[in-house]
Design a protein around this nucleic acid. Structure first.
Lengths: 158, 158
DNA sequence: ATTAAAGATTACCACAATGGTATGCTTTAT
DNA sequence: ATAAAGCATACCATTGTGGTAATCTTTAAT
Protein backbone atom coordinates (compact mmCIF):
# COMPACT_ATOMS: atom_id res chain seq x y z
CA UNK A 1 0.00 0.00 0.00
CA UNK A 2 0.81 3.67 0.32
CA UNK A 3 -0.31 3.98 -3.26
CA UNK A 4 -0.53 6.91 -5.57
CA UNK A 5 -3.81 7.01 -7.48
CA UNK A 6 -4.06 5.49 -10.92
CA UNK A 7 -4.87 8.88 -12.38
CA UNK A 8 -1.53 10.16 -11.13
CA UNK A 9 0.11 7.21 -12.78
CA UNK A 10 -1.76 7.90 -16.02
CA UNK A 11 -0.70 11.50 -15.73
CA UNK A 12 2.94 10.51 -15.93
CA UNK A 13 2.25 8.25 -18.88
CA UNK A 14 0.51 11.04 -20.75
CA UNK A 15 3.25 13.53 -19.95
CA UNK A 16 5.75 11.03 -21.28
CA UNK A 17 3.85 10.86 -24.57
CA UNK A 18 3.73 14.62 -24.84
CA UNK A 19 7.44 14.77 -24.14
CA UNK A 20 8.09 12.27 -26.92
CA UNK A 21 6.54 14.46 -29.61
CA UNK A 22 8.12 17.67 -28.40
CA UNK A 23 6.43 20.76 -29.78
CA UNK A 24 3.84 18.83 -31.76
CA UNK A 25 0.32 19.01 -30.37
CA UNK A 26 -1.55 15.84 -29.55
CA UNK A 27 -5.33 15.70 -29.57
CA UNK A 28 -7.17 13.90 -26.83
CA UNK A 29 -7.83 11.19 -29.36
CA UNK A 30 -4.14 10.91 -30.18
CA UNK A 31 -3.37 10.54 -26.51
CA UNK A 32 -6.04 7.90 -26.13
CA UNK A 33 -4.61 5.86 -28.99
CA UNK A 34 -1.02 6.23 -27.93
CA UNK A 35 -1.65 5.27 -24.35
CA UNK A 36 -4.51 2.82 -24.67
CA UNK A 37 -6.58 4.81 -22.21
CA UNK A 38 -10.30 5.33 -22.83
CA UNK A 39 -11.33 8.77 -24.03
CA UNK A 40 -13.32 9.80 -20.95
CA UNK A 41 -10.35 8.87 -18.82
CA UNK A 42 -8.06 10.90 -21.02
CA UNK A 43 -10.40 13.86 -20.56
CA UNK A 44 -10.12 13.64 -16.82
CA UNK A 45 -6.37 13.33 -16.92
CA UNK A 46 -5.93 16.22 -19.32
CA UNK A 47 -8.15 18.47 -17.27
CA UNK A 48 -6.07 17.92 -14.16
CA UNK A 49 -2.84 18.45 -16.05
CA UNK A 50 -4.12 21.66 -17.65
CA UNK A 51 -5.50 22.96 -14.35
CA UNK A 52 -2.14 22.33 -12.76
CA UNK A 53 -0.40 24.31 -15.48
CA UNK A 54 1.66 21.36 -16.61
CA UNK A 55 0.05 21.15 -20.04
CA UNK A 56 -1.22 23.78 -22.45
CA UNK A 57 -4.49 23.18 -24.29
CA UNK A 58 -5.62 24.70 -27.55
CA UNK A 59 -9.32 24.46 -28.26
CA UNK A 60 -11.12 24.29 -31.56
CA UNK A 61 -10.24 22.53 -34.77
CA UNK A 62 -6.54 21.67 -35.09
CA UNK A 63 -6.32 22.00 -31.35
CA UNK A 64 -4.55 19.71 -28.96
CA UNK A 65 -2.23 19.51 -25.99
CA UNK A 66 1.45 20.15 -25.43
CA UNK A 67 3.81 20.37 -22.48
CA UNK A 68 3.90 23.72 -20.71
CA UNK A 69 7.50 23.23 -19.58
CA UNK A 70 10.57 21.25 -20.52
CA UNK A 71 10.53 17.70 -19.15
CA UNK A 72 13.35 18.42 -16.72
CA UNK A 73 11.28 21.21 -15.21
CA UNK A 74 8.27 19.04 -14.48
CA UNK A 75 8.60 17.74 -10.96
CA UNK A 76 6.96 14.48 -10.00
CA UNK A 77 5.69 16.32 -6.95
CA UNK A 78 3.75 18.66 -9.23
CA UNK A 79 2.13 15.74 -10.96
CA UNK A 80 1.20 14.04 -7.72
CA UNK A 81 -0.29 17.23 -6.32
CA UNK A 82 -2.16 17.88 -9.57
CA UNK A 83 -4.13 14.68 -9.04
CA UNK A 84 -4.14 14.14 -5.31
CA UNK A 85 -3.89 17.59 -3.85
CA UNK A 86 -1.33 18.54 -1.22
CA UNK A 87 0.72 15.66 0.12
CA UNK A 88 -0.31 15.04 3.71
CA UNK A 89 0.29 11.65 5.22
CA UNK A 90 -2.09 12.18 8.13
CA UNK A 91 -5.43 13.84 8.57
CA UNK A 92 -4.40 16.11 11.42
CA UNK A 93 -1.81 17.91 9.37
CA UNK A 94 -4.18 19.74 7.08
CA UNK A 95 -7.82 19.73 8.07
CA UNK A 96 -9.37 21.14 11.20
CA UNK A 97 -8.31 18.30 13.41
CA UNK A 98 -10.79 17.73 16.18
CA UNK A 99 -10.00 14.14 17.03
CA UNK A 100 -10.96 12.41 20.24
CA UNK A 101 -7.80 10.38 20.31
CA UNK A 102 -5.84 11.49 23.34
CA UNK A 103 -2.40 12.80 22.51
CA UNK A 104 -3.01 12.04 18.89
CA UNK A 105 -2.51 15.31 17.10
CA UNK A 106 0.61 16.12 19.04
CA UNK A 107 2.17 12.97 17.73
CA UNK A 108 0.63 13.25 14.32
CA UNK A 109 2.25 16.58 13.83
CA UNK A 110 5.47 14.63 13.92
CA UNK A 111 4.42 13.06 10.68
CA UNK A 112 4.89 16.51 9.30
CA UNK A 113 8.61 16.07 9.20
CA UNK A 114 8.31 12.81 7.33
CA UNK A 115 5.90 14.56 5.02
CA UNK A 116 8.52 17.17 4.27
CA UNK A 117 11.13 14.56 3.49
CA UNK A 118 8.80 12.77 1.15
CA UNK A 119 7.97 15.99 -0.64
CA UNK A 120 11.62 16.83 -1.04
CA UNK A 121 12.21 13.51 -2.71
CA UNK A 122 9.27 13.90 -5.03
CA UNK A 123 10.32 17.45 -5.83
CA UNK A 124 13.79 16.34 -6.85
CA UNK A 125 12.67 13.75 -9.36
CA UNK A 126 11.56 15.20 -12.68
CA UNK A 127 9.72 13.90 -15.72
CA UNK A 128 13.09 13.62 -17.36
CA UNK A 129 14.33 11.33 -14.61
CA UNK A 130 11.28 9.15 -14.88
CA UNK A 131 11.49 8.95 -18.66
CA UNK A 132 15.12 7.95 -19.03
CA UNK A 133 16.11 4.99 -16.89
CA UNK A 134 19.70 6.11 -17.09
CA UNK A 135 18.96 9.33 -15.25
CA UNK A 136 16.74 7.45 -12.88
CA UNK A 137 19.51 5.04 -12.02
CA UNK A 138 21.93 7.89 -11.67
CA UNK A 139 19.65 9.73 -9.32
CA UNK A 140 19.12 6.61 -7.30
CA UNK A 141 22.80 5.88 -7.02
CA UNK A 142 23.33 9.40 -5.83
CA UNK A 143 20.99 8.87 -2.95
CA UNK A 144 22.29 5.51 -1.86
CA UNK A 145 25.94 6.00 -1.06
CA UNK A 146 25.25 9.70 -0.91
CA UNK A 147 28.83 10.57 -1.37
CA UNK A 148 28.46 13.80 -3.26
CA UNK A 149 25.71 15.81 -4.92
CA UNK A 150 24.00 15.94 -1.59
CA UNK A 151 22.02 19.03 -2.36
CA UNK A 152 19.81 16.56 -4.16
CA UNK A 153 17.22 16.84 -1.48
CA UNK A 154 17.17 20.58 -1.27
CA UNK A 155 14.17 21.90 -3.16
CA UNK A 156 14.33 25.50 -2.12
CA UNK A 157 16.68 26.64 -4.82
CA UNK A 158 14.63 26.20 -7.94
CA UNK B 1 -3.70 12.99 -0.30
CA UNK B 2 -1.07 10.28 -0.43
CA UNK B 3 -2.31 9.29 2.99
CA UNK B 4 -1.26 6.60 5.35
CA UNK B 5 -4.20 4.70 6.80
CA UNK B 6 -5.68 5.74 10.11
CA UNK B 7 -4.76 2.39 11.59
CA UNK B 8 -1.12 3.12 10.86
CA UNK B 9 -1.53 6.42 12.60
CA UNK B 10 -3.16 4.72 15.58
CA UNK B 11 -0.33 2.24 15.59
CA UNK B 12 2.17 5.00 16.22
CA UNK B 13 0.00 6.46 18.95
CA UNK B 14 -0.24 3.10 20.68
CA UNK B 15 3.47 2.47 20.37
CA UNK B 16 4.06 5.85 21.93
CA UNK B 17 1.95 4.88 24.90
CA UNK B 18 3.80 1.61 25.32
CA UNK B 19 7.08 3.47 25.12
CA UNK B 20 5.93 5.82 27.87
CA UNK B 21 5.43 3.06 30.39
CA UNK B 22 8.61 1.22 29.53
CA UNK B 23 8.65 -2.34 30.80
CA UNK B 24 5.18 -2.15 32.36
CA UNK B 25 2.53 -4.11 30.53
CA UNK B 26 -0.62 -2.41 29.32
CA UNK B 27 -3.86 -4.29 28.82
CA UNK B 28 -5.98 -3.62 25.77
CA UNK B 29 -8.32 -1.80 28.11
CA UNK B 30 -5.49 0.38 29.39
CA UNK B 31 -4.53 1.26 25.85
CA UNK B 32 -8.12 2.11 25.01
CA UNK B 33 -8.40 4.47 27.95
CA UNK B 34 -5.03 6.10 27.42
CA UNK B 35 -5.60 6.71 23.72
CA UNK B 36 -9.34 7.28 23.57
CA UNK B 37 -9.68 4.58 20.95
CA UNK B 38 -12.59 2.15 21.04
CA UNK B 39 -11.82 -1.35 22.23
CA UNK B 40 -12.53 -3.16 18.95
CA UNK B 41 -10.23 -0.74 17.22
CA UNK B 42 -7.54 -1.33 19.80
CA UNK B 43 -7.87 -5.06 19.17
CA UNK B 44 -7.23 -4.58 15.48
CA UNK B 45 -4.28 -2.34 16.08
CA UNK B 46 -2.70 -4.64 18.62
CA UNK B 47 -3.10 -7.66 16.38
CA UNK B 48 -1.24 -5.97 13.57
CA UNK B 49 1.50 -4.78 15.89
CA UNK B 50 1.92 -8.23 17.43
CA UNK B 51 1.90 -9.95 14.04
CA UNK B 52 4.60 -7.58 12.89
CA UNK B 53 6.73 -8.45 15.89
CA UNK B 54 6.75 -4.89 17.17
CA UNK B 55 4.82 -5.69 20.33
CA UNK B 56 4.82 -8.68 22.66
CA UNK B 57 1.53 -9.98 24.02
CA UNK B 58 0.97 -11.97 27.15
CA UNK B 59 -2.34 -13.76 27.35
CA UNK B 60 -4.40 -14.72 30.36
CA UNK B 61 -5.04 -12.88 33.59
CA UNK B 62 -2.46 -10.19 34.36
CA UNK B 63 -1.56 -10.22 30.70
CA UNK B 64 -0.97 -7.25 28.49
CA UNK B 65 1.24 -5.73 25.85
CA UNK B 66 4.73 -4.30 25.81
CA UNK B 67 7.22 -3.16 23.22
CA UNK B 68 9.30 -5.87 21.62
CA UNK B 69 12.22 -3.53 20.97
CA UNK B 70 13.63 -0.26 22.23
CA UNK B 71 11.91 2.78 20.71
CA UNK B 72 14.98 3.74 18.72
CA UNK B 73 14.91 0.33 17.07
CA UNK B 74 11.34 0.61 15.86
CA UNK B 75 11.41 2.03 12.35
CA UNK B 76 8.44 3.95 11.05
CA UNK B 77 8.76 1.82 7.93
CA UNK B 78 8.05 -1.26 10.03
CA UNK B 79 4.90 0.31 11.41
CA UNK B 80 3.68 1.38 8.00
CA UNK B 81 4.31 -2.06 6.56
CA UNK B 82 2.64 -3.69 9.54
CA UNK B 83 -0.63 -2.02 8.63
CA UNK B 84 -0.42 -1.44 4.92
CA UNK B 85 1.80 -4.18 3.62
CA UNK B 86 4.80 -3.55 1.40
CA UNK B 87 5.18 0.02 0.24
CA UNK B 88 4.48 0.16 -3.49
CA UNK B 89 3.43 3.41 -5.05
CA UNK B 90 2.10 1.82 -8.22
CA UNK B 91 0.23 -1.32 -9.04
CA UNK B 92 2.66 -2.58 -11.62
CA UNK B 93 5.54 -2.80 -9.19
CA UNK B 94 4.24 -5.73 -7.18
CA UNK B 95 1.31 -7.58 -8.63
CA UNK B 96 1.18 -9.46 -11.89
CA UNK B 97 0.86 -6.44 -14.08
CA UNK B 98 -1.18 -7.17 -17.16
CA UNK B 99 -2.30 -3.67 -18.04
CA UNK B 100 -3.61 -2.57 -21.41
CA UNK B 101 -2.05 0.84 -21.15
CA UNK B 102 0.60 1.05 -23.82
CA UNK B 103 4.05 1.74 -22.50
CA UNK B 104 2.67 1.92 -19.02
CA UNK B 105 4.57 -0.66 -17.04
CA UNK B 106 7.86 0.36 -18.54
CA UNK B 107 7.34 3.80 -17.11
CA UNK B 108 5.75 2.60 -13.93
CA UNK B 109 8.81 0.60 -13.14
CA UNK B 110 10.48 3.95 -12.85
CA UNK B 111 8.35 4.62 -9.83
CA UNK B 112 10.37 1.85 -8.27
CA UNK B 113 13.25 4.20 -7.68
CA UNK B 114 11.03 6.73 -5.99
CA UNK B 115 9.62 3.90 -3.96
CA UNK B 116 13.09 3.02 -2.78
CA UNK B 117 13.80 6.57 -1.75
CA UNK B 118 10.58 6.79 0.19
CA UNK B 119 11.33 3.54 1.96
CA UNK B 120 14.79 4.72 2.88
CA UNK B 121 13.34 7.81 4.49
CA UNK B 122 10.74 5.84 6.42
CA UNK B 123 13.37 3.36 7.49
CA UNK B 124 15.57 6.07 8.93
CA UNK B 125 12.93 7.60 11.16
CA UNK B 126 12.32 5.67 14.36
CA UNK B 127 9.69 5.70 17.06
CA UNK B 128 12.15 7.66 19.13
CA UNK B 129 12.34 10.35 16.49
CA UNK B 130 8.59 10.58 16.26
CA UNK B 131 8.15 10.72 20.02
CA UNK B 132 10.62 13.47 20.84
CA UNK B 133 10.24 16.59 18.71
CA UNK B 134 13.82 17.49 19.45
CA UNK B 135 15.13 14.42 17.69
CA UNK B 136 12.62 14.92 14.95
CA UNK B 137 13.82 18.45 14.35
CA UNK B 138 17.40 17.31 14.44
CA UNK B 139 16.73 14.61 11.91
CA UNK B 140 14.93 17.06 9.70
CA UNK B 141 17.71 19.62 9.87
CA UNK B 142 20.15 16.91 8.91
CA UNK B 143 18.27 16.25 5.74
CA UNK B 144 17.78 19.80 4.63
CA UNK B 145 21.24 21.26 4.29
CA UNK B 146 22.58 17.75 4.18
CA UNK B 147 26.01 18.86 5.15
CA UNK B 148 27.09 15.85 7.12
CA UNK B 149 25.58 12.66 8.50
CA UNK B 150 24.70 11.77 4.96
CA UNK B 151 24.51 8.06 5.56
CA UNK B 152 21.15 8.96 7.02
CA UNK B 153 19.40 7.50 4.03
CA UNK B 154 21.29 4.25 3.92
CA UNK B 155 19.16 1.51 5.43
CA UNK B 156 21.23 -1.49 4.52
CA UNK B 157 23.46 -1.42 7.60
CA UNK B 158 21.03 -2.22 10.36
C1' DA C 1 -21.33 32.34 -42.14
C1' DT C 2 -21.33 27.50 -41.66
C1' DT C 3 -19.51 23.50 -40.25
C1' DA C 4 -17.05 20.22 -38.03
C1' DA C 5 -13.12 19.28 -35.11
C1' DA C 6 -11.69 19.47 -30.74
C1' DG C 7 -11.54 20.72 -25.89
C1' DA C 8 -14.53 21.77 -21.38
C1' DT C 9 -17.96 20.68 -18.09
C1' DT C 10 -21.09 18.19 -15.46
C1' DA C 11 -23.14 14.34 -13.66
C1' DC C 12 -23.62 9.53 -12.70
C1' DC C 13 -22.61 4.71 -11.15
C1' DA C 14 -20.16 0.41 -9.65
C1' DC C 15 -16.67 -1.51 -7.11
C1' DA C 16 -13.17 -1.83 -3.55
C1' DA C 17 -11.02 -0.31 0.59
C1' DT C 18 -11.26 1.67 4.86
C1' DG C 19 -12.83 2.11 9.37
C1' DG C 20 -15.67 0.92 12.81
C1' DT C 21 -18.43 -2.69 15.45
C1' DA C 22 -20.09 -7.04 17.42
C1' DT C 23 -19.83 -11.87 18.84
C1' DG C 24 -17.75 -15.77 20.46
C1' DC C 25 -13.33 -18.63 21.50
C1' DT C 26 -8.86 -19.62 23.84
C1' DT C 27 -5.30 -19.06 27.15
C1' DT C 28 -3.55 -18.55 31.89
C1' DA C 29 -2.70 -16.42 36.72
C1' DT C 30 -4.92 -16.72 40.89
C1' DA D 1 -12.53 -23.39 38.88
C1' DT D 2 -12.91 -18.95 37.45
C1' DA D 3 -12.38 -14.66 35.76
C1' DA D 4 -9.20 -11.68 33.35
C1' DA D 5 -7.35 -10.87 29.29
C1' DG D 6 -5.87 -11.71 24.58
C1' DC D 7 -7.39 -14.02 19.84
C1' DA D 8 -10.19 -14.79 15.78
C1' DT D 9 -13.88 -14.17 12.75
C1' DA D 10 -17.36 -11.98 10.61
C1' DC D 11 -20.24 -8.05 9.41
C1' DC D 12 -21.68 -3.40 7.75
C1' DA D 13 -21.65 1.54 6.58
C1' DT D 14 -19.15 5.10 4.44
C1' DT D 15 -15.94 6.86 1.36
C1' DG D 16 -12.93 7.21 -2.55
C1' DT D 17 -11.52 5.66 -6.76
C1' DG D 18 -12.09 4.65 -11.37
C1' DG D 19 -14.65 4.41 -15.21
C1' DT D 20 -18.49 6.14 -18.34
C1' DA D 21 -21.85 9.08 -20.58
C1' DA D 22 -24.05 13.16 -22.38
C1' DT D 23 -23.83 17.91 -23.44
C1' DC D 24 -21.87 22.51 -24.09
C1' DT D 25 -18.30 25.79 -25.88
C1' DT D 26 -14.62 27.26 -28.67
C1' DT D 27 -12.28 27.92 -33.13
C1' DA D 28 -9.85 26.69 -37.66
C1' DA D 29 -11.10 25.87 -42.26
C1' DT D 30 -14.04 26.32 -46.05
Amino acid sequence: MLRISKLTDYGIVVLDQLAQVGAVKLSADDVAQRTGLAMPTVRKVMKSLVDAGLVLAQRGAKGGYRLAKAPHQVRVLDVVEAFEGPVSLTECSTETHRCDITAHCSLSSSWGGINQLLMKVLARVTLDDVRTPALQDQLYRDLVPLSSRIQLLNIDDE
